[in-house]
């Protein structure tokens, strides 16, 4: 009897707690999967079967139909579906990778270097940026405005700017970064739209990638900062004594150790960009539209087209699931890294 509650080895639970664990995991699995099952069932229904009340099992209590699947994948909407799908497939991974590179680098910098940006410099910069924008608002050509703001900034920096000696630290930089995510996208949609219009980048994937990189950078920096902190600095010190450069240390020591964190972070960023809706809607027209907009579009004057939506959500989630299954192995490797490290 006692053996039932005894664990055989570390991290391997006893049979009783294993059973309990399975029950708990099973309940949550059901909670997670049931809505998805409902999507699958709904995608096989005709409109009238949805409106008439709940039917649960195809073939048993209703006759399934592939009408909605046909409509989305091969029928009238297929052109829209595949075009937006392609855009999503291109935009999301590219922007996720770029974000991860930039974000991890600066997260590394924030954990290994000390920065002291001076308050005076920051305020003069913000002031000059505001000045430039006001000037542009009053009709000054924007290139002229930016250059003159630049000149003013340097003048101020070399005169007044030097008098303010107070400076900020790494944590302040990190907090400034995360604060860039605090403003709801709705407030910045119009300015960003105008920005990309000026750059002639509206309705391009490039615009979407740039936007997504900047909106997701703070998350990457914050998550990676915590991971990198937990990696012992001794290894790097040894490497530095052996004459390895910073970049080499970063590339061949820090990154491999941070793989679990990198993978998890990559997954988030991928998911965020894969699913982003509002900015994509505004920055894209016919060419660069992404998939979430097709889903949201299924709620038109006829009420939500549940069956079409279900199909779209399902085909949209499949590649991400595949990605999660592939990357899951790498997350698992985190355990090994931990063992080696000890």
């Amino acid at each position: 009897m006692n053996r039932l509650f005894q664990r055989k080895s570390i991290l391997r639970p006893s049979p009783a707690s294993m059973a309990l664990s399975y029950v708990a995991l099973g309940i949550w699995t059901f909670i997670v999967l049931f809505p998805l099952y409902w999507l699958v069932v709904t995608s096989l229904k005709l409109p009238i079967q949805v409106h008439e009340g709940p039917f649960y099992l195809p073939f048993v209590d209703f006759q399934p139909s592939l009408d909605a699947w046909y409509y989305i994948v091969a029928g009238d909407l297929s052109k829209d579906t595949w075009r937006t799908y392609l855009n999503t497939v291109i935009v999301a991974p590219i922007s996720a990778v770029i974000t991860l590179i930039l974000g991890t680098a600066s997260a590394y910098a924030l954990t290994r270097f000390n920065y002291q940006p001076r308050l005076g410099a920051i305020f003069t910069f913000i002031g000059c940026a505001a000045l430039a924008i006001v000037a542009i608002a009053f009709g000054v050509p924007w290139l002229v405005a930016i250059i003159s703001a630049l000149v003013i900034f340097f003048l101020l920096l070399s005169t007044i700017g030097r008098r303010f000696k107070r400076s900020m630290g790494n944590d302040d930089i990190a907090f400034w970064m995360i604060s860039q995510r605090m403003l709801p996208p709705i407030a910045v949609v119009i300015p960003i739209y105008i920005l990309f219009q000026q750059l002639n980048l509206l309705d391009t994937r490039t615009a979407l990638i740039i936007t997504y990189v900047t909106i997701n950078l703070p998350i990457v920096v914050w998550l990676m900062r915590d991971y990198l902190r937990s990696i012992p600095i001794e290894l790097e010190e040894c490497a530095a004594i052996d004459g390895a450069s910073r970049y080499r240390i970063f590339w061949s020591i820090v990154l491999p150790l941070a793989v679990p964190g990198l993978v998890a972070t990559f997954l988030f960023v991928l998911v965020f960009t894969w699913n982003e809706y509002l900015l994509a809607l505004f920055l894209s027209g016919a060419k660069a539209q992404t998939l979430p907009y097709v889903i949201s579009s299924q709620n038109a004057t006829r009420g939500p087209q549940w069956w079409n939506m279900s199909v779209l959500i399902l085909i949209m989630i499949i590649p991400v699931i595949a990605m999660a299954i592939v990357l899951e192995r790498y997350i698992a490797r985190g355990l090994l890294v931990g063992a080696v490290k000890g």
Partner: peptide, 28 residues
């Protein structure tokens, strides 16, 4: 380490200007 060096700022603005200028000429 002095963080905001004028050099850094210059780089920032030049980059901004370059990025901006690249987009500036209206495509046909």
């Amino acid at each position: 380490m002095n963080f905001i060096k004028p050099v850094g700022i210059l780089v920032l603005f030049v980059l901004l200007a370059v990025v901006a200028a690249c987009g500036a000429p209206p495509t046909p």
